[in-house]
């Protein structure tokens, strides 16, 4: 934590980069950590909270083990990405209001465009990109993950 702050010289101008590094470390931005950052940068806590909630990239809630990012950019939307979102809602009851499963396995994120429109609709699970995804394909990938997790248990 302090290493991150030091590496940015406690510079309040680098707040966003600091938050990015911290999120990489913790996978989300815990409240006390944000308070700590605010103190060190000499910023009001409400300001840091305001910046953290402005950018979609930041999460103040812990994320699941698998972050399923479904692209809902124009090309994906026109190619029925909504059906994939529906699938997540049906299978895991995940939606805008509830992004993470209770067992912390999956987090659903709707993203505006991943810039891979040629492959629409696109789904990214953690860092793996899946192109031309339909309900069956996404279902199969999720099944695979679930089986994998089951085996590990």
């Amino acid at each position: 934590m302090n290493e991150i702050l030091d590496s940015f010289n406690n510079d309040p101008y680098r707040l966003i980069a600091i938050l990015q590094s911290v999120q990489e470390e913790y996978r989300y931005l815990p409240e006390p950590v944000l308070s700590y950052i605010a103190t060190n940068l000499g910023l009001p806590r409400a300001r840091v909270f305001g910046v953290a909630t402005f950018y979609a990239h930041f999460s103040l809630q812990p994320k699941g083990k698998y972050v399923v990012r479904i692209c809902d950019g124009t090309a994906c939307h026109v190619n029925r990405s909504q059906s994939l979102l529906d699938l997540m809602d049906e299978r895991f009851k995940l939606n805008d209001n509830k992004p993470t499963t209770d067992d912390m396995l999956f987090t659903l994120e709707k993203v505006s465009c991943l810039g891979a429109c040629g492959l629409a609709p696109v789904v990214v699970i953690n860092d793996r990109v899946y192109g031309q995804v339909n309900v069956d394909k996404l279902g199969a990938v999720l099944d695979e993950i679930l089986e994998d997790e089951e085996r590990r248990r």
């Binding site: 409240e31 605010a38 806590r45 409400a46 909630t53 402005f54």
Partner: peptide, 25 residues
Amino acid sequence: QEMQGIGALDFAYRGSKVQVLPAFG
């Protein structure tokens, strides 16, 4: 922020969800 130098309130969230809130709501 400017007159009192406290910054107890600030904008949070974005777009149609934007709100004025104390830190962490």
